[in-house]
Design a binder for these strands. Structure first.
Lengths: 194, 194
DNA sequence: GCATTCATGTAAAAGGTTACATGATTGG
DNA sequence: CCAATCATGTAACCTTTTACATGAATGC
């Protein structure tokens, strides 16, 4: 049922069409939830039928814009108040890290570097998003919540990037002898002098 | 297909039964992946049939212990090398944070405190896990990967706990006038003096 | 005019959750 | 001996993913 409340919650702060929601799930809310359009359209239809949202206008190419009704808002509040967050985590990239010992050290290092790179890009995107946001302190309450949550996205991206860089460095240090010598020509020479 | 590789990867470092895997998905690997036993048993049967794992022994109550075969190991390596990690994120608690503006300020604060509490507990559990781990530097390569990945779990739990505490404090500062006065009796009095 | 993008929708397949079912061992 | 726990398995249901389908507007 989380998808339903994701939609109702998003449409409560700003009216949107199905594709608009896809875009919000891809960027601003992407670090918290994601859904395909094939899932969103049927859910919108169900919510509309149940009076949780209403169609408030149409746009160019058959675009239909929705907004959450009072009933829909109440439904989100009940969900927030009376249910515990689902704590199940499934993160493919985190899982892969458990299995890097099955790779050659240089492959493992490359994996961690690519992780760092991915989250570095993510971080930049979220920083741009933050910069493009309205005034601080925010004008409306929804913006305040968005700001708080965006801060989480930023912190998560940063911690994943830093961790992956650290893991890559750790992995690099235990490379086979052939590659370790190249590093020693710079570092060990000094150690010998001491 | 990620579940399959999760199982193959785990059984490559240490043989286990179906329920053993459930336990590993609940604690040590819980911040990366989760699966129910009802998903694990059929997958084990399929992997066994395809020669990706083998049964290496039995235990007390009909317990069947499996280990990943060379073919299974190769399959994990191909997966790691040739496929990109699935980047889709779905986090119920993160999503809820977007919608806290629909709650009373004290309810929103309570939500963030409860988040901080949850991740504080998680952090303690992972720290215990770390303490219970083998020697550092690790004896076998799988342990090295586990250590790296556990460090990610620790950092994620810490960042979520700190963020939630910060968000709760932020929310507390914007409480309705009635409760703000109680704080003012302590803080604003001083400001007036300056 | 015609390719691209925007926009909505449906269908089938895969994956995940909840519920049901059963038997063996252990601990009190 | 009997309740609780360990252990495996299956079935129905729900959610998510991938694929198919179509039309309207825009930009060149």
């Amino acid at each position: 049922m989380t998808l339903r409340y994701a939609i109702l919650g998003l449409l409560a702060s700003e009216p949107a069409s199905g594709l608009d929601l896809v875009r919000r799930f891809q960027k601003s809310a992407g670090f918290a939830w994601f859904a395909y359009h094939s899932q969103i359209y049927p859910e919108l239809a169900r919510c509309l039928q149940e009076g949780l949202i209403e169609e408030i206008g149409t746009g160019p190419r058959g675009k239909r814009v929705y907004r959450t009704t009072q009933r829909g808002r109440a439904a989100v509040q009940v969900w927030l108040r009376e249910t515990e967050p689902d704590r199940v985590v499934r993160n493919d990239a985190s899982l892969r890290s458990f299995f890097t010992w099955l790779l050659e050290p240089d492959e493992a290092e490359a994996f961690y570097r690519s992780e760092a790179n991915y989250h570095g890009n993510m971080l930049r995107e979220l920083e741009q998003l933050k910069a493009s946001l309205g005034p601080d302190p925010p004008a409306n309450p929804a913006d305040a919540s968005s700001r708080l949550t965006l801060e989480l996205g930023l912190r998560l991206a940063r911690v994943r990037m830093d961790w992956a860089t650290w893991a890559a460095d750790q992995t690099a240090r235990q490379l086979p002898v052939s590659r370790q010598r190249k590093l020693q020509s710079v570092t060990t020479e000094r150690r010998r002098g001491a």
